[in-house]
Design a protein around this nucleic acid. Structure first.
Length: 428
RNA sequence: GGAAGCGUGGCCGAGUGGUUUAAGGCAGCGGUCUUGAAAACCGCCGAAGGUGCGAGCCUUCCGUGAGUUCGAAUCUCACCGCUUCCGCCA
């Protein structure tokens, strides 16, 4: 959520910066609604003040044994008036709140301008794509004989669900274990295990709601809707970041660095035709997530550091990749600045997204009331960051494709061998 | 699933319709004292919002939401959460 003070004082500048990411802010309508809010709030508060004063007088008079019928008659209609004023204000305030919750974050000034992914800027590359002296297969063909089973996944749950068996299931687990161990052991993140079902309030906090409900899986208990809406998490960014919701951290509690391995559930509404083959785009996939709660002065340094942490995983696995800066038009709803990591997939002869690392600034903190007490004793919003480190399913895809051999086997990257019972290859 | 109890500031805890502007304590911050520290004493010490150049003034918040009342932490209803006992269960 943006700072409403900023909209009151600098709305034209805000509108211009939002336009750069493709969001049109109706300045006139906002100003009109805000003026109405101001009028209604002032009137309501005057009436509340009057009620308080008069009620206090009645209390004193009664205590002194005086006759209060005159005062009582005077305020006979005050209750109804006040109720109407409060209802009127609440309705306008809700409109304003709903609007504020649906406005995306402002891009940082260093974010390149652009309408879509063609405006993204490559920052650096690492590794050299391997040259093959045989015909390269994609991960579907490499994986099928090794236990990558799309048919059974579809039988159980429909399209975009996959069953892993045998060594390939173990390789998938090995990847997650390696990532988690690296982030906890070498990068200083605290391991978390968190719920996979969350209340709508958590999703409002991180920004999946109210705008993106169609991307989520909603769940019911015993087939009945509860009093609060609940959803499967689409990323553990949701649970990790919301751990600091409604709290005021001490200065020395910053930064807080958290990581978790979790499944992620996404409806993939609006991407029906895309990536239908293979396990690039699934309704359920595993991800090791990094989340950082930072002092505002440190959040960009933290972003660079977190990108490096994600890169370290790819380097350790020997997977070629590149880092790109997302342009204004390609960034996510709540992002202030985002770097994507794209891994080399030889069968597609291109780089594909495997991690996304974002500095959300105070956007999520304001929505979830996550603050810290600064050196002057003032409460300020923290900055929140999140990044994949990495998407496990896509990392498995990358390993299968990049490490495939002519005989149909797949070499196990060295760092994973301890997790594979010492095996140096699977299949073949 | 059955039964009972409990939700008050960072923490503990008083408060069962009327100057509550939420007592008191702990923690924290500032000061006095001290060579320094501790102890003691004095003072400060919740959050959100509105309005104003500003000192300030005003409003809201006692799990959440409705309701009763001139007036609600206090009364009513619903919901959420926690604790204990019984049953069931990985």
């Amino acid at each position: 959520m943006l700072d409403i003070q900023l909209l009151r004082s600098n709305i034209d500048e805000v509108a211009a910066r939002l336009a750069s990411r493709g969001y049109t802010l109706d300045v006139e309508a906002f100003n009109a609604l805000e003026a109405e809010r101001k009028f209604l709030q002032t009137r309501m508060q005057e009436l509340q003040s009057k009620r308080n004063t008069v009620s206090k007088q009645i209390g004193i008079a009664k205590k002194n044994g005086e006759d209060v019928s005159a005062i009582m008659a005077e305020v006979a209609t005050l209750g109804d008036e006040l109720k109407a004023a409060e209802d009127g204000f609440a309705a306008v305030q809700k409109q304003l709140d709903d609007w504020m919750m649906s406005i995306p974050n402002l891009p940082h000034e260093s974010v390149p301008a652009g309408d879509d992914e063609s405006g993204n800027v490559e920052v650096r590359r690492w590794g050299t794509p391997r040259s093959f002296d045989f015909e390269v297969k994609d991960h579907v063909d490499v994986g099928a004989p090794l236990g990558l089973d799309f048919d059974t996944g579809a039988k159980l749950s429909g399209a975009r669900f996959t069953v892993l068996k045998g060594d390939i299931a173990r390789l998938h687990r090995a990847l997650a274990q390696f990532m988690l161990n690296t982030h906890t052991g070498e990068h200083g993140y605290e391991e978390h295990y968190t719920p996979y079902i969350v209340n709508d309030s958590a999703l409002l906090g991180t920004g999946q709601l109210p705008k993106f409900a169609e991307d989520m899986f909603k769940v019911t208990r015993g087939g009945e809707e509860g009093t609060v809406d609940q959803y499967l998490i689409s990323t553990s960014e949701i649970t990790l970041t919301n751990t600091v919701a409604d709290s005021i951290l001490k200065l020395e509690e910053l930064p807080r660095k958290m990581t978790a391995h979790s499944p992620c559930f996404r409806s993939e509404a609006g991407s029906y035709g895309r990536d239908t083959r293979g396990m690039i785009r699934q309704h359920q996939f595993d991800k090791v997530e990094m989340v950082r709660i930072e002092h505002p002065d440190n959040s960009f340094a933290a972003l660079d550091e977190m990108v490096n942490h994600a890169e370290n995983i790819l380097k350790a696995l020997g997977l070629p990749y590149r880092v790109i800066t997302l342009c204004t038009g390609d960034m996510g709803f709540g992002s202030h600045k985002t770097f994507d990591l794209e891994v080399w997939l030889p069968a597609q002869n291109t780089y594909r997204e495997i991690s996304s690392c974002s500095n959300m600034g105070d956007f999520q903190a304001r929505r979830m009331m996550a603050r810290f007490k600064d050196a002057d004793g003032k409460n300020r919003y923290v900055h929140t960051l999140n990044g994949s480190g990495l998407a496990v399913g896509r990392t498995l895809v990358a390993v299968l494709e990049n490490y495939q051999n002519a005989d149909g086997s797949v070499t196990v990257p060295e760092v994973l061998r301890p997790y594979m019972g010492g095996k140096d290859k699977i299949g073949g």
